[in-house]
């Protein structure tokens, strides 16, 4: 059994909401994908799971920037997470997983590490 990365189509541009997040289901669990049209890169993705509450809610947080870094605020207890690094601003020992995400034509591709032989066709 090999671990390898692969790119999966998770949704299309029409599913995105500017300056906000959506949640997608992956083999690794729920992932939050944010579309920030006024930044580069415009697409960022982190785990959807809020490490403080254990609930899958981060895609529903408010996005923005603090000190120039892109952030999302957890909708439950309001901690901020750096969308590039996944580090929590209030407690740097806490970090959520980050994912690479790409725009390919109309499709949004997410990079995951598959532990199975076959990747879902991109």
């Amino acid at each position: 059994m090999k671990t390898r990365t692969c790119w999966n189509t998770i949704c299309t541009v029409d599913d995105l909401v500017p300056e906000s997040g959506i949640a997608v289901w992956t083999e690794e669990g729920p992932v939050a994908v944010f579309y920030l049209p006024h930044r580069l890169p415009a697409l960022v993705a982190i785990s959807h799971k809020d490490p403080f509450s254990g609930a899958n809610v981060l895609a529903r947080g408010i996005t923005g920037d603090l000190g120039g870094e892109p952030i999302v605020a957890s909708p439950l207890y309001k901690q901020h997470f750096n969308l590039k690094t996944g580090v929590c601003l209030e407690d740097e020992s806490v970090r959520v997983k980050t994912y690479s995400v790409l725009l390919d034509g109309n499709r949004i591709l997410l990079e995951t590490r598959e532990t199975q032989q076959e990747a879902v066709a991109a």
Partner: peptide, 22 residues
């Protein structure tokens, strides 16, 4: 309205009150 969605707290966005399990 599209311009206003990203401004709202989750409760306003989804017009309901989020509880501890999401």
């Amino acid at each position: 309205a599209t311009d206003h969605v990203p401004l709202q707290d989750t409760n306003d966005t989804f017009m309901a009150n989020m509880q501890k399990n999401g």
